[in-house]
Amino acid sequence: MAAKPVLYSYFRSSCSWRVRIALALKGIDYETKPVHLLQDGGEQNTDNYRELNPQCEVPTLEIDGQTMTQSMSIIEYLDETRGPPFLLPQGDPIKKQKVRAISQAIACGIQPIQNLRVLQYVGGEKKAEWGHYWIERGFKGLEQLLQGTAGRYCIGDEITMADVVLVPQVYNANRFKVDMSAFPTISRINAALLEVEAFKVASPSEQPDCPPELR
């Protein structure tokens, strides 16, 4: 019998959250091993964790006898090795390109600029201003993109990788007090996704390392 997958995760990490959603959508049972990104200088920076993930980031997923890093590549691996629902459309290269474009607009163009490592470098009182500015700027373009692709969800009426990436980023937008009324398409899609069970169980408040005051 194959070992249960192990996900090294931080409850509020966008990248960890994406993988949790994908695992839930695929119905994959797994064990969570929390990695506190702030405690004692960050558990991701310890020698033990560095051996697991030399980039000292979360998530890390142990599955199928392999140790995997980088959330987007993990999601694509799960799509290629597990059954439906498929998060990348099958047999439709144009639709698949649109899913990847929306996903990367967030995962490559917005989230990295306001992740923990960057905010720690920016430092002090500028962190909130920095995060707010870059998310708002990124959402202006994303809103226009989604107006051309969205149905109930980001790409039509089926959940795709783009939706998996969107929800954690909207959470961050709210943390940085971005006025979401300026982004009605993003807000509508996010609200619909938050009603889906897989998104509920993957949310930060449902994770074992979520502080009681944030549940």
Rank of each mutant, 00 (worst) to 15 (best):
I155N: 00
I155Q: 03
I155Y: 07
G156S: 04
G156E: 08
G156M: 04
G156Y: 05
G156A: 04
D157T: 11
D157G: 06
D157I: 08
D157F: 12
D157V: 11
E158H: 03
E158I: 09
E158G: 00
E158C: 12
E158S: 15
I159V: 15
I159R: 07
I159S: 06
T160P: 07
T160V: 02
T160L: 02
T160F: 02
T160Y: 07
T160G: 02
M161F: 14
M161N: 11
M161H: 12
A162M: 01
A162D: 05
A162I: 07
A162V: 04
A162S: 11
A162L: 10
A162E: 13
D163S: 14
D163E: 13
D163G: 14
D163H: 14
V164P: 10
V164R: 08
V164L: 11
V164F: 10
V165E: 06
V165M: 06
V165C: 14
V165F: 14
L166P: 11
L166M: 04
L166K: 03
V167A: 15
V167I: 15
V167T: 15
V167E: 14
V167D: 09
V167K: 15
P168H: 01
P168C: 14
P168S: 07
Q169D: 02
Q169L: 11
Q169R: 02
Q169N: 12
Q169F: 01
Q169H: 02
Q169I: 03
Q169W: 05
Q169Y: 04
V170E: 05
V170W: 11
V170Y: 06
V170C: 12
V170H: 04
Y171W: 10
Y171D: 04
Y171N: 07
Y171Q: 01
N172D: 06
N172W: 02
N172L: 10
N172F: 05
N172S: 13
N172A: 13
A173C: 02
A173K: 08
A173D: 02
A173E: 05
A173Y: 10
N174W: 08
R175F: 06
R175V: 03
R175Y: 06
F176R: 05
F176Y: 12
F176L: 00
K177P: 00
K177V: 03
K177F: 00
K177S: 01
K177L: 15
K177C: 12
V178S: 03
V178A: 03
V178L: 13
V178D: 09
D179E: 13
D179I: 10
D179P: 09
D179G: 05
M180A: 09
M180K: 14
M180R: 15
M180I: 14
M180D: 04
M180F: 08
S181T: 14
S181I: 00
S181F: 00
S181C: 03
S181K: 15
A182V: 05
F183V: 15
F183G: 09
F183E: 12
F183N: 06
P184H: 09
P184D: 13
P184N: 10
P184S: 11
P184F: 12
P184M: 01
